[in-house]
C-alpha cells in the first residue's frame, strides 16, 4: 500500500511538470498550429535563471525559492515572447517553416546554455523542508512533490479562470476552434498569438524551476527530455485542449511510474505504447476536437 501511494505521488509530481510544459504546447498548437520545439529551451532557461537566483541569494530559504520561481517564469515568458515576435510572426501561416525555426532555435539555445553553464548537470539546493518527507498512509513522500503538484494545480486554475473570464481568454478559446472566423469578426488574432506564447513560456519557465528541484539538478538537456513526454501528453490529451493536457499529463506520468516499478523499468515504452493505442483508436486524442 505504501509503495502504491509513493508511486502515485511521485507520478503526480512528474505529471505536474509534464502539464506545465504541455499546457503551453497545447494552447500554442491549438491556436496557431505551431509545434514548438523551442518550448524545452524556455523551460531550461527558466531552470538556469532560477538556479542563478538560488545560488546568488543563498539557496535554502523560502523567499529565495519563491523569487526563483518568479524569475524563472519571467525569463521563460520573455524568451517565448521574443520567439513569437521576432521569429514566428515573420512566417505567419507557414506552419512547417515555423516548426523549423523553433527547431533551429532549440539547437542554438541548448548549445548556448552548454557554453554558458557547461554540459554537466549543476546541483541545486532548495529550502530544507524539500528534503524531508511527509507520511501519507504509511508512505514517506518527498516534500518537493507536493510543491510541484500545488504549483501545477494553481497554474491550471489560473489558466482556466483566464480563459473563461477575460476577453483575451475568450479570443483564445474561439481561435482554437476557428481562427479565421475570429479575424473575420475584426479581431487581430496575432496579439493572442504573442499572448499564448508568453503564457506558455511562463508556465514552462516555472516548470523548469520546479523540475530542477524535483530532479535535484539543472542541465542544458533538462528541457529536451521533458519536452518529448510533453509532446506525447499533448497528443494523447488532444491537441489544443487544456483539460486534455492536464488529464493526460497525470495519466502518462502515473502510468510511467507504475510501469517503471512493477514492469522492470519499462515506463517509457508503456507510455509510447499508450500513445500508439490512443492513435489507433482515437486519433484526435482523449479530449481532442473530433473532426
Amino acid at each position: 500500500m505504501s509503495t502504491l501511494v509513493l508511486l502515485l505521488f511521485t507520478g503526480l509530481g512528474l505529471g505536474a511538470l509534464y502539464f506545465l510544459v504541455a499546457a503551453g504546447l497545447s494552447l500554442i498548437y491549438g491556436l496557431m498550429g505551431v509545434l514548438n520545439f523551442a518550448h524545452g529551451a524556455f523551460l531550461t532557461l527558466g531552470a538556469f535563471t532560477g538556479w542563478e537566483i538560488a545560488r546568488r541569494t543563498g539557496g535554502d530559504n523560502w523567499w529565495t525559492f519563491l523569487l526563483s520561481l518568479l524569475v524563472g517564469a519571467v525569463a521563460g515568458a520573455l524568451f517565448a515572447a521574443f520567439t513569437e515576435f521576432v521569429l514566428i510572426r515573420r512566417l505567419y501561416q507557414r506552419h512547417i517553416e515555423q516548426v523549423l525555426v523553433t527547431v533551429g532555435l532549440s539547437l542554438a539555445a541548448v548549445a548556448l546554455f552548454d557554453g554558458i553553464w557547461g554540459t554537466d548537470p549543476v546541483f541545486i539546493q532548495g529550502p530544507a523542508w524539500f528534503k524531508e518527507t511527509t507520511d501519507i498512509l504509511g508512505a514517506r513522500i518527498p516534500n518537493d512533490r507536493f510543491i510541484c503538484i500545488i504549483a501545477a494545480v494553481l497554474v491550471l486554475l489560473a489558466l482556466v479562470f483566464f480563459l473563461k473570464n477575460t476577453r483575451y481568454g475568450m479570443i483564445i478559446r474561439a481561435g482554437v476552434e476557428n481562427r479565421s472566423m475570429v479575424t473575420a469578426l475584426g479581431i487581430d488574432v496575432r496579439k493572442a498569438f504573442t499572448l499564448v506564447f508568453t503564457i506558455g513560456g511562463a508556465a514552462a519557465g516555472l516548470g523548469g524551476v520546479l523540475a530542477s528541484h524535483y530532479f535535484g539538478y539543472v542541465s542544458p538537456l533538462l528541457g529536451g527530455s521533458l519536452l518529448i513526454f510533453a509532446f506525447i501528453v499533448t497528443v494523447i490529451g488532444g491537441l489544443g485542449s487544456l483539460t486534455g493536457a492536464a488529464v493526460a499529463a497525470v495519466a502518462v506520468a502515473v502510468l510511467q511510474q507504475f510501469a517503471n516499478f512493477y514492469l522492470g523499468g519499462t515506463g517509457d515504452f508503456v507510455v509510447v505504447l499508450a500513445l500508439a493505442l490512443v492513435l489507433l483508436f482515437r486519433p484526435s486524442g482523449l479530449l481532442g476536437r473530433t473532426s
Binding site: M170, R173, A174, E177, N178, S180, M181, T183, A184, L185, G186, I187, D188, V189
Partner: peptide, 24 residues
C-alpha cells in the same frame, strides 16, 4: 489590409454554415 482591418473598416460578415463558436 489584413482581414481584421477590412472588417473593422465596416464590413459585417455572415459566413456560410454560420460558423458560430460552438464551445462559447
Amino acid at each position: 489590409e489584413p482581414t481584421y482591418k477590412i472588417i473593422r473598416s465596416g464590413v459585417g460578415y455572415v459566413p456560410e454554415d454560420r460558423e458560430v463558436f460552438s464551445k462559447l
